[in-house]
């Protein structure tokens, strides 16, 4: 019994952390699909979201919800700036210049925030005013509950947006064949800008959600992004379902391994899982070995 509750407890924590990876991985995948480029600053979107929340809530003393909405709006604006500053000028180049551009943006963002906010990690209050609930011997921390609920809601919203609206279909069309999309009159540059806005907001939400658990810090984005990136490969590169399942799976693997094998190697298990997948199932969980069809 002890064994079961202990593992349920770890499973719960793992799913919570995994949700954060999943949200950032989802942002990765949306940008990969729209632009064929891995956005190395994706993790820094989470970092910026966290700092925006700290600024509005702790710094300016806004009510939690107002500060949260403010942080999301700030991330939306940032998504526009990122699109036009980092991606747009290089859109006709191959993937490499764009990739380097996002890498540069990542370094720039981290150092700018370091300069402005200083090196000390910032604490952030939880959304709910209680510690959590105990259910059958398993302690459910309120912030982890918030993370899980928010992730389910966001995944559901993303699904509705991309699968049920014409705008979502236009975004998909843009990611599948840009020239054809343009011939149909779809404003491709705007579609890509929307993708960056959406990814920035998703990343920002992840940062605000995880802030109360990990503290808001300059480096928080890098470690989350590395694991989210591993999650996209494990799930199937460029696959939306895969990003979510891969993220959750990675969170659970990491937490179980930390508990049962060794805590100090916590961050290594994600990459061990990545190695194993690359060796035995390089196309990932949902990926298919497809040949180009004429």
């Amino acid at each position: 019994m002890q064994f079961i509750t202990e593992n349920l407890q770890i499973l719960f924590t793992g799913l919570g952390l995994g949700s954060i990876y999943a949200l950032v991985a989802l942002g990765f995948v949306l940008i990969i699909r729209a632009t064929n480029v891995v956005n190395f600053a994706q993790g820094d979107f989470a970092m910026l979201g966290g700092y925006a929340m700290v600024l509005f809530f702790t710094g300016l003393g806004w009510p939690y919800w107002i500060a949260f909405i403010g942080a999301l709006l700030a991330m939306a604006v940032f998504g526009v700036l990122f699109n036009y500053g980092v991606y747009y000028p290089l859109r006709h180049r191959s993937f490499l210049p764009v990739l380097i551009s996002t890498l540069g943006a990542s370094i720039f963002l981290q150092n700018t925030v370091l300069y402005v906010a200083g090196p000390q990690p910032k604490p952030l209050d939880k959304l709910l005013n209680f510690d959590g609930i105990t259910l059958g011997g398993v302690f459910l921390d309120s912030q982890y509950i918030v993370i899980l609920v928010a992730t389910v809601a966001l995944v559901f919203f993303t699904f509705l947006f991309f699968e049920k609206t014409l705008l979502g279909k236009k975004l998909q069309a843009t990611s599948q064949d840009k020239d054809m999309a343009r011939l149909l009159g779809i404003p491709v540059a705007l579609m890509i800008a929307i993708t960056f806005i959406y990814s920035a907001v998703l990343g920002g939400i992840a940062g605000v959600l995880v802030g109360p658990i990990l503290f808001v810090s300059i480096g928080m984005g890098s470690i989350i992004a590395l694991k989210a990136f591993a999650a996209t490969i494990i799930g199937g590169f460029g696959d939306v379902k895969g990003a979510i399942v891969g993220g959750l799976l990675l969170g659970v693997i990491e937490s179980l391994a930390a508990q049962h094998i060794s805590v100090p190697y916590k961050d290594a298990y994600a990459f061990l899982a990545l190695f194993l997948f690359l060796l035995f199932r390089p196309q990932g969980i949902f990926g298919e070995k497809v040949s180009e069809k004429a």
């Binding site: 014409l166 279909k169 998909q172 069309a173 599948q176 064949d177 999309a181 149909l184 779809i186 004429a294």
Partner: peptide, 25 residues
Amino acid sequence: SHVPEGRRIFPGLTVRENILLGASN
């Protein structure tokens, strides 16, 4: 309206969705 060589159907969208997007202009 340009129907290009090679058809250029959006592979990951359904037939109906492909048709609907034709009206994007």
